[in-house]
Design a protein around this nucleic acid. Structure first.
Lengths: 233, 233
DNA sequence: TTCCGAACATTGTAGGACAATATCAGAGCG
DNA sequence: CGCTCTGATATTGTCCTACAATGTTCGGAA
């Protein structure tokens, strides 16, 4: 692995890159994750503990733990006595994850629609209000709205395990790998679908909410897969 | 924490408890997991790195890693500068996990029914053949059959990510905590339901397979929750 | 050419040390 | 008597070095 591929290689102890006590592991994980999803670390690249310790200016302990976490997330593969290799998701894995996510979010939408807690419903309505007010003007804004919307659904679904599990589904990674091919039309369509889902939830229509969420994610999966197919690989 | 609560406390370097090189972490994880689910380590008990190193006769590195893994599984909670505390699943968490498992297995059943690969279907039929041949004579046999059946469904569903995710859902732990209140009637019912699910899958009836799996797990969840409610807590 | 063994690379683990931080007991004060 | 603040203590977070175990590679011999 080239030292240049990791930005921390040059000044390991300077500027603000020295994380506070207790944040070293998180620091390394974030750097490596970013390097992987951004493509700086190519598929199959080897991550050797010794090199990482030198590049980050930390000892092997945190490096090892960071590698374990990345491996748990599926970003790298730990090969005993060989080192860790970057393991980006295959098209098939992405399709499988989308399928799972679809079921989990559909469940969340159903549960949210079934939830009768008035206070939580009010919170939900407030959280998603921005979606009804305006259309996102840029991709970043859409991504924020999207995350907010799905988080609000999970919050109303009131199933903590579901929320945690969904969070571990590497959705940001998938988004990063799928690429920012989000055209304005897709954005519009997505927001429209969000509104439909929200309406069904607020109408206490579990079946409708579930169906709307399924349709939403099925379309998103199709878009992602089409993009993925277009890539040469 | 009393040293007696962990069987490894007495002879840390004797008999066969010294794991081979490369298996130390797994060794510790298994010991601790067993101690937790068996109740030897009570809820809220503190797990201090220093004590564990002494009891297992290993250094802090593997102990730390083992604790991280247990925390990832939800069995313990890591409190910074406080130590790890045993965190058994609450009734609510179990209910939430059952709900998620229901959706995931329902998805698996649907996918399995949709799978048209002749070779895989044949493998599935062979794997579940014992279920049709006889009724389990004891609980252990049932548990084995149950695991075999669900594994076969996942195999036919042909979604690797789904299989992995389901495996991380702490089902064995839940079973252990729910307790072995499996009466012969429940066993019989469960086997009957397995047969119905298998029949739907082999009939290439996705909706039927999904419905049957939902019914099966919903009933299992009800049984577990009833048992759980009976416990004083 | 193929197979075998030795050097090499890399991880797995040990053990000690210090820093950072949370907890707790007790002194001092109102 | 109760409250706050401070110091002692406990525990984790990190670093460092060293060695053991094991997979890899490459040269040499049959």
């Amino acid at each position: 692995m080239d030292a240049q591929q990791l930005p921390a290689a040059d000044e390991p102890a300077e500027e603000g890159d020295g994380p506070r006590h207790g944040a070293t592991v998180v620091f390394i994980v974030e750097r490596l994750r970013d390097a992987i999803v951004s493509g700086r670390l190519k598929l199959g690249a080897r991550l050797v503990e010794g090199e990482l310790t030198a590049q980050f200016g930390v000892s092997r302990g945190p490096v090892r733990e960071a590698l374990r976490r990345l491996a748990a997330d599926g970003l790298i593969e730990l090969v005993p006595h060989r080192g860790a290799i970057v393991r980006r998701l295959t098209r098939r894995e992405i399709a499988e994850l989308f399928q799972i996510r679809l079921e989990l979010e559909a469940l969340a939408a159903r549960l949210a629609a079934e939830n009768g807690d008035a206070a939580r419903r009010r919170q939900f309505a407030e959280a998603i209000a921005p979606i009804f007010e305006s259309k996102p003007r840029c991709i970043a804004e859409y991504l924020w709205e999207n995350a907010t919307f799905h988080e609000a659904v999970y919050a109303l679904a009131d199933n903590e395990q579901l929320k945690v599990l969904a969070g571990r589904l590497q959705l940001p990674l998938i988004m990063a790998q799928v690429g920012n091919i989000l055209t304005p039309e897709i954005l519009d369509l997505s927001v429209t679908e969000h509104r439909a889902i929200a309406a069904a939830i607020l109408d206490s229509d579990p079946a409708g909410a579930r169906a709307a969420m399924c349709a939403h994610l099925q379309r998103a999966a199709d878009v992602a897969d089409a993009q993925r197919r277009a890539d040469v690989r």
